[in-house]
């Protein structure tokens, strides 16, 4: 459900009109619009935003670990419309146990490396990603450093 205070923002209304079940919530804070999207709908919502709402650029994909809260991960997408000079942030909540989410590489090829980075550093799987491998760390690295339960100091024994 789209919160009522977001009804004045055309993008938020358009996404709700496109797929009312996809929108789980949202907020407008510090001049930035955030929409919370159901993880299973993220690729179709991104496709809609790119092709119908002119959000041609995917600025970045990243994640936030809310450990020990559940659902643990937030996968965050920053979209940019050059034509309308507008930005929107999409957010999906993903469970901590065996986290998976749809890949948006089918919408933007540029999502490839960003999703690989999130996979590498957070351990979130992207379904439908063409080449999901570690990108920053060596292939035999254990663990995912940007998780909050990953130790900051110490050495492996």
């Amino acid at each position: 459900m789209l919160p009522d205070n977001l009804r004045e923002y055309a993008v938020a209304v358009a996404v709700e009109a496109f797929d009312a079940e996809a929108v789980k919530g949202g907020k407008y804070d510090r001049n930035e619009l955030t929409l919370e999207i159901a993880p299973g709908k993220i690729a179709s919502v991104c496709g809609f935003l790119k092709f119908d709402q002119a959000f041609v650029r995917l600025s970045t994909v990243t994640a936030v670990d809310r450990y020990p809260a559940e659902p643990r991960f937030e996968v965050v997408y920053h979209l940019h419309s050059v034509e309308h000079n507008a930005r929107v942030r999409l957010k999906c909540l993903v469970r901590g146990e065996d986290p998976v989410i749809e890949s948006v590489t089918g919408v933007w090829r540029g999502a490839n490396w960003y999703e690989r980075e999130v996979f590498d550093l957070f351990g979130i799987q992207f379904i439908g990603h063409p080449d999901l491998r570690r990108i920053m760390l060596p292939d035999d690295w254990e663990g995912h450093p940007l998780r909050k339960d990953y130790p900051i100091t110490g050495s492996r024994v």
């Binding site: 804070d29 510090r30 930035e32 955030t34 600025s59 990243t62 930005r87 942030r89």
Partner: peptide
């Protein structure tokens, strides 16, 4: 508490800071 995405034009292009 909050989150922001701040963009600056670095010599190479869009440099964005997403800070939570």
């Amino acid at each position: 508490e909050g989150e922001v995405y701040q963009v600056v034009e670095s010599p190479r292009g869009e440099l964005g800071f997403y800070m939570v």
